[in-house]
């Protein structure tokens, strides 16, 4: 497969991600799509560690590490300063986990996109606070075990629909992407780079450590998330124009859940209920895209 991206690697070997880490795969593709004229804002997340300790770095672009809840705000400042220096060409990208995006950083993100700051906000979503040891976030899906939703207290609340929250801000571009679909991911990153204003990318990034899956299953699980409609690939322009990028054939969520240790406790009746939720979300999306039969 030939990817339409930079041959050069802007992420080096020697990073300290876990084997099979989806967040590292996502970073590699995104940097290949963005190229060297990129400044990265990195609020606290797995990547604060993965990048490597001082004085080393596995990233060959300028990076500013920043506090957990500041992804949107720090990027606003970097953008403003670059503009004042006459540099409107360099892309500013915030690279945050789901905790820094869905939860603690949501206010700063909402503020930045309401101001339509010219930057890309990329959330690599591994569906829990993985860096601190698998605690639940508002991105953790219904049914999941985490270290703060254990035993009978497995999470019985839906995952926050972050893309719809961003779409509600009517930003120029919001899209989902997935490490198992690199061509689609790279196309979306390049598209975001070319658009002026606030762009949001929600990137599915599997986590073998936190999901209790073998590391070699990372891509397979990610692909199944799209094939089951659990994580549909779509993009929204200006808060209204929906495009669904991939329409799977009928595929049952059960198979996705059965492969992951974090869902081991779920009964068939729970899985039936989850299937209904996924179907409902998919129909809602089809309707927004004007494709509802």
């Amino acid at each position: 497969m030939q990817l339409d991206a930079l041959d050069k690697e802007l992420m080096c070997s020697g990073h300290v991600g876990c084997p099979g880490c989806g967040a590292t795969i996502a970073m590699r593709f995104v940097l290949k799509a963005l190229g060297e004229k990129t400044v990265m804002v990195l609020p606290a997340c797995c990547w604060s560690v993965i990048a490597g300790p001082f004085p080393q770095s596995s990233l060959r672009i300028p990076v500013i590490h920043t506090a957990f809840e500041t992804g949107g705000a720090t990027a606003s400042g970097v953008r403003a300063a670059l503009d004042m220096k006459g540099d409107t060409e360099t892309t500013v990208i915030t690279w945050a986990g789901d905790g820094g995006t869905f939860d603690i950083g949501f206010q700063a993100l909402s503020g930045a996109v309401e101001r339509n700051e010219d930057f890309i906000y990329a959330c690599y979503d591994n569906e829990a606070y993985m860096n601190t040891g698998i605690q639940r976030s508002s991105s953790t899906p219904y049914g999941a075990w985490t270290t703060t939703t254990t035993g009978a207290d497995w999470k019985k609340l839906r995952k926050k629909n972050i893309v719809e929250a961003l779409v509600a801000h009517r930003i120029p571009y919001a899209a989902t992407a997935n490490i198992a679909f690199p061509e689609d991911l790279i196309r979306k990153v390049k598209k975001a780079k070319a658009i002026k204003g606030s762009k949001f990318l929600h990137i599915y990034a599997s986590c073998p450590t936190g999901w209790r899956i073998p590391s070699e299953m990372s891509i397979k699980i990610a692909r199944m998330a799209v094939q089951t409609n659990i994580f549909p690939l779509y993009e929204v322009e200006n808060g209204v124009n929906y495009t669904i990028n991939y329409k799977p054939k009928e595929y049952l969520v059960r198979e996705y859940f059965k492969l992951q240790g974090r869902f081991r406790h779920l009964k068939d009746t729970d899985l039936d209920q989850i299937q209904e939720m996924v179907n409902e979300d998919w129909w809602l999306l089809l309707r927004k895209a004007g494709e509802h039969a």
Binding site: V39, V41, I64, T66, A67, E69, T70, G72, A73, T74, A75, S76, G77, V78, R79, A80, A81, L82, D83, M84, K85, Q107, A108, S110, G111, A112, E114, R115
Partner: peptide, 23 residues
């Protein structure tokens, strides 16, 4: 540039980003 941010916390974060860019 005047950044009309949504909180003091974001204000200081924005300045950290801007000052780190050399202004």
């Amino acid at each position: 540039k005047y950044l009309r941010v949504e909180s003091e916390h974001s204000c200081m974060a924005a300045l950290i980003g801007a000052q780190s860019t050399g202004i």
